[in-house]
């Protein structure tokens, strides 16, 4: 199936600061993508350019095979919910939902009402009087009920409590199963979101560090624990992202290359303990590793 989003050598600079650097990326339809990265990695900038709300300094953005800028047929198939969403000051919750029902062609009003009940959102309350969590819930409702073929959430749950976040994940998965579509979720809560993500795009300083299915990534990345000598022997020629020594033991996290054989099997044969690794921990190690490398290079 052809890609739903294609970014070709995309760059966005603000004066001397480059937020996105020569980025090339392709996203397939009907998948849940996690757009991950540290603060300032370029996630929000990238999403703004995807939805034609921001202009690239150079490069090409294609959504559904076309440039999204001023392209009605493309724009009406997208819904972008951002953390910093501004609403007209006099609007109430019901006004936002009413406007959304007019502007999104696949809008499901009954589903929106059900979500309003789930998140206990007061329909008649003025937007200015909503708490941070309620504002996030409103964004989540618009995003889910829009049923847009490309739905993008940028940090959608700031201020949402754990229960509400759980409702969001559950509803998203249920609705995704019934109405498959491309969902891009930009988040810092990697552990929570990892349960629903199918594919991960990790950005680091405006470039793609990882672009891989979650299952494959989980398969390739793991931690081994054992005596220092054994582990060091095992690690020869492998891509190590984190090392931790305690007592006479060494704990190493590695990301196996796709071509290499079954490293887990090899580790087990050497009687090393293989420990599963969370996606969040892997992302932390990968992004830290790059920083450490930079420090070394600058010396």
């Amino acid at each position: 199936m052809s890609d739903i989003i294609e970014l070709q050598r995309l760059t966005k600079s603000y004066g001397s600061v480059t937020a996105i650097r020569d980025l090339t990326l392709r996203l397939a339809p009907n998948k849940i993508y996690g757009l991950l990265g540290r603060n300032g990695a370029g996630k929000t900038t990238l999403l703004h350019m995807l939805t034609a709300q921001l202009f690239a300094s150079s490069g090409e953005v294609k959504v559904l095979g076309e440039d999204p800028f001023e392209n009605e047929s493309v724009l009406r198939q997208m819904c972008f919910i951002k953390e910093s969403q501004k609403y007209p000051e006099t609007y109430r919750v019901m006004d936002v939902l009413k406007v959304a029902s007019v502007l999104f062609p696949n809008w499901d009003g009954d589903y929106a009402n059900m979500l309003v009940n789930d998140f206990e959102l007061p329909l008649k309350r003025n937007i200015r009087k909503l708490s941070r969590g309620m504002l996030s819930a409103l964004g989540v409702i618009v995003g889910l009920a829009s049923r847009a073929p490309i739905t993008i959430f940028d940090e959608p749950y700031l201020g949402l409590d754990a229960v509400a976040r759980g409702i969001f994940y559950d509803r998203l998965l249920e609705d995704y199963e019934e109405h498959p579509r491309t969902i891009i979720l930009s988040t810092h809560l990697i552990d929570e979101a990892s349960k629903i993500l199918e594919h991960v795009v990790l950005l680091e300083q405006g470039d793609v560090l990882i672009n891989e299915d979650v299952d494959q990534l989980r398969e390739r990345a793991f931690t081994v624990v054992g005596t220092t000598a054994k582990v060091e022997g095992f690690l020869m020629g492998k891509n190590v992202v984190h090392l931790e020594e305690f007592g006479g033991l060494l704990k190493a996290t590695l990301v196996n290359s796709r071509e290499a054989g079954d490293c887990r099997q090899q580790a087990q044969e050497l009687e090393l303990e293989v420990v599963p690794l969370s996606l969040q921990q892997l992302i932390v190690y990968l992004t830290n590793k790059k920083d450490e490398r930079k420090v070394v290079e600058s010396r």
Binding site: T51, Q53, E70, N71, E72, L75, R76, M78, C79, F80, K82, Q85, K86, Y87, P88, E89, V99, A100, L103, F104, A148
Partner: peptide, 16 residues
Amino acid sequence: PQTFSFTISMQVRRKD
């Protein structure tokens, strides 16, 4: 300032 950001965020063209 009241409506542009909201309208564009709802995926409306600038021309519209």
